[in-house]
Amino acid sequence: MKKVVQRIQSRTQYVDVQPANLIFDSGPQPLMQYVLTLSGRPEESPNAAYLFDSQRYTLDDFGGTPEEVPTSEICALIDSISDYSGPLDDALGDLKASGTVKISPLGPSLEINLEGRARTLIDFYYAVNQMLTLRSVRAEVLVRGFADGELDGWQEKLDSAYNYTSVEVMPPLDAAAPIAFRRTRVRIPLLEPPKYSNRDLPNLRARYVKEVLLDPYLANCPSNTPATSAILQGFAYKEASRPLDRKVQVYLLFYERG
């Protein structure tokens, strides 16, 4: 796995891969684990990158509804670049035409945008693809959302396509020690549905990434490693106006295959 991580680090720009140290109150503990941190906005400096806009939990530039996310085309795209040995930008450069890649063998011709935050997610899908190559283990993929602090008590109405009035999460054993979690999941409702606030954003972002971006990929793209997914309870940082905190982290935990 060390070589896989090195390959991801050398080929991607907008996903960081590091060893993780999550622990759980029951059940088997993972044999090994890693965390992927997504940092978007590649049209800006990566040092000032963030994935979500302020007060938002969806990505309009990557499918306005769940049905619009081009999962099968993404599978084909990741397969087409997985054999390249250099940076993904070089691989995509061979496929790129005016900022898009057009993949037509899988049905109606569809253009996949390779700029903006969609470009970040290509790195993410590539990293997940590379991590799920081991045949001797099974994987658990856990998504955790974050938000920066709020300047005032704002509220927004839920997106009609993603009407998440509650989110099922694995809660932390202790809020002061956010690496230890309970296996038993709890459902956390919005504070005042159908509106959401800054308190709700971390878990809303995690549910969106899990259900719209991750689960369709795990279900439809071939992998050597069987995987399930869930959400870890997230949190909002105290400091406001910190775009880097508008992110998600994706943990890949590996267990003996039984």
Rank of each mutant, 00 (worst) to 15 (best):
K3N: 15
V4F: 05
V5H: 06
Q6H: 13
Q6F: 09
Q6I: 07
Q9F: 03
Y14D: 11
V15E: 00
Q18H: 10
A20H: 05
S26W: 10
P28N: 12
P30Y: 01
Q33V: 04
Y34H: 12
L36A: 05
L38S: 07
L38P: 09
R41M: 10
N47G: 14
A49K: 08
A49D: 05
A49R: 12
F52V: 02
Y57S: 00
T58I: 12
L59M: 10
D61R: 10
F62Q: 05
T65M: 09
P66M: 01
P70G: 02
T71C: 11
E73G: 13
A76P: 08
D79F: 08
I81A: 09
S82R: 13
D83C: 11
D89W: 02
D90C: 09
D90Y: 09
L95M: 15
V101L: 05
L106K: 12
G107S: 06
L110T: 15
E111I: 06
E111T: 11
G116Q: 07
R117V: 14
T120M: 06
Y125L: 06
A127N: 07
N129M: 10
Q130W: 04
L132N: 01
R138L: 12
E150V: 11
W154M: 07
K157Q: 14
T165E: 12
M170A: 11
M170H: 15
M170K: 08
P171M: 02
P171C: 04
D174H: 11
D174L: 12
A175P: 09
A176S: 15
A177H: 15
F181Y: 15
R183N: 07
T184N: 10
R187M: 11
I188L: 12
L191R: 14
L191F: 11
P194R: 00
K195D: 15
Y196I: 03
N198G: 15
R199S: 13
L213Y: 09
L214W: 00
L218D: 06
N224W: 09
P226M: 06
A227L: 04
A227N: 02
T228L: 10
I231F: 01
L232A: 03
G234N: 03
A236W: 07
Y237Q: 13
A240N: 08
A240V: 07
A240L: 06
P243A: 05
P243Y: 05
L244R: 14
K247V: 04
Y251W: 08
Y255N: 01
E256V: 10
R257C: 06
